Simulated assay, not measured.
Amino acid sequence: MKKLIVLILFLGLTVTMSFGQGNTEKIGYVDQQFIIENLPEFKKLNQEIAVKSHQYEKILKGKFEEYQTKSAAFEKLLADKSEQTILRDKAMELENLKKSYEDFESSSMTELQNYYSKKFTPIRQKVGEAVIFAGRQQGYAFVLRMDLNPDGGDIWPVVLYARDSTSNLSRDILKNLGVDSTAASTRKTGMSQMLKQK
């Protein structure tokens, strides 16, 4: 039954399932990545990252070219058997250039990651709230996102919205596993655990 539900959801259909005494529960799924990629603010963020990356690449290229030029000059000094004082000075200069390149490469990548994370967080929050709103508005019991299993095989459904937690089987599963549990988990399911109830 589980594989059938996953297969139907993967095909992009909305499923209506019957549970027990005639209750009908709607389950839907969203392509969250498609939604995010089509938001103007996400497109703008990608453009900003591309511009910043290009600027950093130009600076890194300049640093690398300077290093190559001074490295060639150092090799010539070595071949000409220049004085040790000059060689030490030029070797130190090369080491400082290399360190400057590596430091800038590392700090620019960190800055880009931090910038992306800071700007992406409200986008993800906005989509999460929109998923919950749509799920409530249209009477869905669950809204899922389908993820590929990193180990291969089946697709994993990820719950983005659950209307309630009355179907929590955690306690029963622990009992079946021989663990005495006096209370079921009270954690919220899906995205709603991170977003305030509206």
Rank of each mutant, 00 (worst) to 15 (best):
E111M: 13
S107T: 13
R124D: 10
V127M: 14
S100R: 02
T121P: 07
S100H: 00
D103V: 04
K118I: 07
Y116C: 01
G135R: 03
Y115R: 11
F104H: 03
G128E: 07
L97A: 06
E129L: 10
M109C: 08
K99F: 09
K118C: 08
S106A: 11
K98L: 10
N114A: 10
V131L: 10
K98P: 04
E129S: 09
E93K: 15
F104T: 05
I132E: 05
K126I: 04
Y101P: 01
K119V: 03
E129A: 14
K118D: 14
K99V: 09
I123G: 08
S108E: 00
F104I: 03
D103C: 06
N114Q: 11
K98V: 01
D103L: 07
K118S: 12
L94I: 07
Y115W: 08
E93P: 12
A130E: 05
Q125E: 15
F133T: 13
K119M: 09
E111I: 07
S107H: 04
A130C: 01
I123V: 11
Y115H: 14
E111A: 15
N96R: 12
G128Y: 06
I132K: 02
K118P: 02
F104L: 09
P122T: 01
T110P: 03
F133N: 13
E105G: 11
K118G: 09
S100M: 00
M109R: 13
E95P: 01
I132S: 08
D103P: 00
F133E: 15
S106Q: 07
